[in-house]
Structure formats: structure tokens, C-alpha cells
Amino acid sequence: MWAAVLLGSAGCYLLKLAGLSVPRRILASPRVRRVAEILPIALLSALIALQTLSTGMRLGVDARAAGVAAALLAVLARAPFLVVVGVAVLTTALIRLAH
């Protein structure tokens, strides 16, 4: 775990530093810009699907899915960040409690 923490941290910092240091025209290339725009969207969306529906290499729908669905409603209602997370946690906990 320490390896992940330290490698990930170093990588993230170097990216920040690169942005401030690299000559403008390299990062300003439309191609790089376009990738940097869609990469976070694709990754966040993939992570949501994976962490809601997968356990290891298995797919399945459990209490988490209901929690994330409730969070989606909160997002659509423009609830603040903490409320969105709180709604998901509470819904998931209540469903597990009921079983």
C-alpha cells in the first residue's frame, strides 16, 4: 500500500509541476487538451460503475447500487457534495440493516 501511496503521490505532483514548467505549445496542443478533457470523465464514470457493480472479478447488484442510485437523485437535485455522499451511505446502511 505504501508503494501505491508514494508512487501515486509522486506522479500526481510531477504532473502539476509539468504543467507549470513545460513550454506552452506542448501541453497546448489541441490533441493533448482534448485527451485531458475526456480522460477524467471516462475514468470517473468507469470507477462509478466498477465500485457500484463489481466485487473482485464478479458483477452483481447489491445494497451499494441502491445507495449510488439515491446519490444520483441527490446529484440531480443539485445537493452539495456531503449530502450526496451521506445519502448513498445512509441508503446502503439501511438496506443492509433491513436484511
Binding site: A4, G11, L15, K16, V22, R24, L27, R33, L39, P40
Partner: peptide, 27 residues
């Protein structure tokens, strides 16, 4: 989710790539 340390670090770094673009705008 049980993923390896390298995969976890790589995912984090990829998500952090937008900060490089921010830096470009900020410099």
C-alpha cells in the same frame, strides 16, 4: 476493490492529468 498497488497508482496519476493543463493556464 482488491487491485494492485501499481494499478491504483496509475489510475490516480491518470486522473491527475488535468492538473497539468491547469498548470499550463496558470503559469
Amino acid at each position: 476493490a482488491g487491485g494492485g498497488g501499481l494499478t491504483a497508482a496509475a489510475t490516480a496519476v491518470l486522473l491527475g492529468s488535468r492538473n497539468a493543463l491547469y498548470g499550463l493556464r496558470l503559469s
